[in-house]
């Protein structure tokens, strides 16, 4: 413990002299890395057929929806909720998010995670997929998915 304390003190001295204790945030904006950036363009498939990218997208949509549902309750007039959804989708390379089933599954997953009652799911269904459209059914599917 004493050794660790001495090393820590020495480290402190070096830190004070030389620099900061945290990396600059440059891992995501490294200007010199063409090849590392291209590595991100390949998405591998997981065993259940969903790509890593799709899973990450679905999770982001789910977390966003859960956060929205907990703080606001319903999608309101839909525009702001959809705009937020569009921004998240774009980060995953999805611009036509209405045509991507992961969007609706993620919304259902998020509503479940936020503890939204089944009866209140319809507000989001109406706003996004129509009460009886395929989007609405996928929201139900995401909501019902226990693993989600």
């Amino acid at each position: 413990m004493r050794v660790r304390g001495n090393r820590a003190m020495a480290t402190l001295a070096v830190l004070a002299l030389f620099a900061s204790a945290c990396s600059f945030s440059k891992s995501s904006e490294s200007s010199s890395d063409s090849s590392a950036a291209s590595s991100r363009s390949l998405s591998s498939s997981s065993p259940d057929g969903k790509s890593k990218n799709e899973q990450a997208y679905r999770q982001d949509v789910g977390d966003y929806t859960a956060s929205w549902a907990r703080s606001k309750g319903d999608p309101g007039d839909g525009a702001e909720f959809q705009k937020g959804l569009a921004r998240i989708a774009e980060r995953h390379g999805v611009t036509n998010w209405e045509a991507d089933r992961a969007t609706y599954l993620g919304i259902g997953q998020g509503l479940r995670s936020a503890g939204v009652a089944p009866d209140d799911v319809s507000a989001f269904q109406s706003s996004l997929g129509g009460d009886s459209g395929s989007g609405a059914k996928l929201i139900e599917e995401g909501y019902a998915d226990v693993r989600s």
Binding site: T11, V14, L15, F18, A19, S20, A21, C22, S23, F24, S25, K26, S27, K52, Q55, A56
Partner: peptide
């Protein structure tokens, strides 16, 4: 060297890794 001189930590949660960076 430079901005990384103190080392760094992160938390890997499956396919995603989270870490705090100086901006």
């Amino acid at each position: 060297e430079d901005t990384a001189s103190g080392g760094h930590v992160a938390l890997r949660l499956g396919d995603q890794t989270y870490h705090f960076g100086y901006h």
